[in-house]
Design a protein around this nucleic acid. Structure first.
Lengths: 249, 249
DNA sequence: TTGGCTATTTAGTCGGACAAATAGCGATCT
DNA sequence: AGATCGCTATTTGTCCGACTAAATAGCCAA
């Protein structure tokens, strides 16, 4: 009933979670998903039936159906015989699913939505930093330090610098030892990446983010939860300000 | 390309999100999903190929494939030609997806996982209550009041009482005006409330939850964020204590 | 008017064929 | 011996067409 891999070799398997779009069902799901989250289809709208839709999209009905299953799994649509497949109300959407977020970012998300993500980050990350200060182990601390050093030398203007930034925040989340909390990191990371791009479109880096990052790190390293929370609050708060400024423009 | 419903009639469509298991692909997904989150399949394990699996489960290959697409959409598995379909590392799982959470609760989740969920709820819900105190409108306030009155008369022992409890918390979340926050907390709340049912299997209601609920309501009605946050902290904290007690048993 | 029956429409399921990708092996060349 | 290239077998991916089951709408009869 179950086959075990000989050597837990997940090394080169991890890289391409993006490959999801390389198959037909994935790309159809993406197409429809973007159309839905961008408002091209409204909640309550009914998609054409499977026969017509698959013909219009030039794919087999099976591939189309698999795409619909993906969308349904993320709460974007709901199917039933006779009625058809309809777009569900927004409150049912898995807004924090990495793919759904990616679809949002493909056709600029509303300012309100971005604000919501930042607000969520403002709630979650400081609390996470506090927990991390209590529970981090040496390995995690070391990864945080390396990420910050990398970030310092590359700056947020480079891809590598942004990746380092993500690594740092990911490791903080991981250090909370709270798996459900950790899954938020990819969502939050996506939001951050997007807003970083936003910011750079209009102006150079508005401010050096390193001092705040180091303060967070120091507090976590020192095992001071309250201090870590406050430092992270400042960090996220400043990022929010910058984003607000570049959006307001 | 798009067909609009005449009367936005989503009224009777909303009830059965559970119907997802009534179709074969859904029930297969559930079976496999439970097997995965319960640890019966480990990350890195490779599932039997589609032909064998679908034969063993007595379903067509198409239905089996649709089930796999659902699991892949929730990050539980990853498929590729030649290699097969393998269970992904836990960090990729959409732990906050309502269905994934439901699968966890089907085979009692680990204490650590439960603790994580409560911890997250403890972070998010008080913050949400604070935001709600600033942004709620009269209609939301009215719905909260009605829910609490219903909850008071029915008690948590009845289905209607639990529904009222859900309504109250959902309305608080809605009142934050933050969609991402809403989806996050709503799925956590729904999942955690399953433990309420667990609790009641073992003992009667350990304590009257109404005073804390009314305090949250009053603070939100009065537009006092800090007070609302503290009241919600107490509310969730007490629920956590109760759960801990019934687990320890 | 109402109640149930039936027709119709739609997703759901099936089975079987063929295509594409790729990991792993083996032959070949250096 | 080692590296490199190409082949092959395995597995998922895609397609097709038929049939099943569910759910609605509308008709017909009481």
């Amino acid at each position: 009933m179950r086959k075990k891999t000989d050597k837990a070799g997940d090394g080169d398997f991890a890289r391409d979670s993006l490959a999801t779009t390389s198959r037909i069902h994935g790309s159809i799901a993406r197409t429809l998903g973007v159309a839905i989250v961008s408002g091209q289809y409204q909640p309550g709208d009914i998609l054409n039936n499977e026969i017509d839709s698959s013909e219009q999209l030039q794919v087999s009905r099976s591939a189309y159906r698999e795409a619909i299953r993906i969308l349904a799994a993320k709460g974007l649509v709901e199917s039933r015989p006779k009625t058809g497949t309809r777009v569900t109300e927004r409150s049912r959407w898995s807004l924090l699913d990495p793919e759904v977020l990616a679809w949002f970012f493909e056709s600029e998300p509303s300012e309100e939505f971005l604000k919501g993500l930042y607000e969520l980050r403002m709630i979650v990350e400081p609390a996470a930093a506090a927990l991390a200060a209590e529970r981090r182990d040496d390995g995690q601390l070391e990864r945080m330090r390396k990420a910050l050093i990398q970030m310092e030398s590359q700056t947020l203007a480079t891809e590598a610098g942004q990746a380092a930034d993500r690594d740092f925040h990911d490791t903080v989340l991981e250090a909370t030892g709270n798996a459900p909390l950790f899954t938020l990191s990819s969502s939050i990371g996506a939001a951050v990446r997007w807003t970083t791009i936003f910011k750079q479109r209009k102006r150079e880096l508005p401010r050096d983010p390193m001092p705040e990052h180091w303060k967070v790190f120091d507090a976590i390293a020192a095992g001071r939860p309250d201090q870590a929370r406050q430092a992270m609050e400042r960090l996220v708060g400043l990022a929010l300000e910058d984003t607000r400024a570049s959006i307001a423009d």
